[in-house]
């Protein structure tokens, strides 16, 4: 459950984050401002507060969502803001001449983004992206608060049945640690692979 929610959030956050990162470097001032405001809110408040806002606010405006959906929405929107900032850094490092040349050749703006900018940027931002995945995996433990039965919540159940908090939580910690070490290793592997590819 923890792994599934984290994966969905990272994927959804990536789409939203990419879109937002182009908003952050847009020529249009209104779009830029709106994107910056979004980023400022989601990066400037605790995830727990965001989670509670999404969970309690949606029902008051008439949208009834199950806890798991609220959790996924909140985490995805949170990571979108962080990923947008990562992507923005990556986009800025691509020489503007490439975009100008592509425009001159009459390539559409969408094609430029999908075919030219995003592939090059992804290689650059991969390490940062892995870090963000690790923090989302860790932050997903918070959704136990709104009653989603992921790893944290399950260990709370174990504790309430066995009355052995030390053992149960230590095991949970080891599981989180194992997942994150695997991610970190994967990150190091991709980093090396792309470094080789880039050197060619």
């Amino acid at each position: 459950m923890t792994a599934a929610i984290s994966a969905v959030c990272i994927a959804a956050g990536m789409i939203l984050g990419l879109w937002l990162s182009f908003g952050l470097i847009s020529q249009n001032r209104a779009i830029r401002r709106a994107s910056a405001a979004y980023r400022s809110f989601w990066r400037g408040t605790p995830i727990l507060v965001q989670l509670l806002i999404v969970f309690y606010l949606l029902p008051t405006i008439g949208v009834d969502v199950p806890p798991i959906a609220a959790a996924t929405i909140a985490l995805a929107m949170n990571t979108a803001a962080f990923q947008a900032e990562i992507f923005r850094g990556g986009l800025l490092s691509i020489p503007p001449g490439q975009v100008e040349a592509a425009r001159m050749l009459g390539i559409g703006i969408l094609s430029i983004r999908v075919r030219i900018l995003i592939p090059q940027m992804m290689r650059l931002v991969l390490p940062a992206l892995i870090n963000e995945t690790i923090s989302i995996l860790k932050n997903s433990s918070l959704i136990s608060v709104i009653a989603v039965t992921e790893l944290m919540r399950t260990s709370q159940h174990v504790v309430s049945v066995t009355h052995r908090p030390l053992e149960a939580y230590t095991i949970a910690a080891v599981i989180y640690l194992a997942m994150n070490l695997v991610l970190a290793r994967a990150g190091a592997y991709f980093e090396r692979r792309y470094a080789v590819a880039a050197a060619r």
Binding site: S141, L142, L166, L177, A184
Partner: peptide, 23 residues
């Protein structure tokens, strides 16, 4: 460093707060 960076803070707090008394 790896343990602190690899586990959620919530787990650490729970281990200290609820697990602490058993040791």
């Amino acid at each position: 460093i790896e343990v602190m960076r690899g586990t959620p803070i919530l787990i650490l707090l729970f281990i200290l707060y609820y697990g602490g008394p058993s040791i």
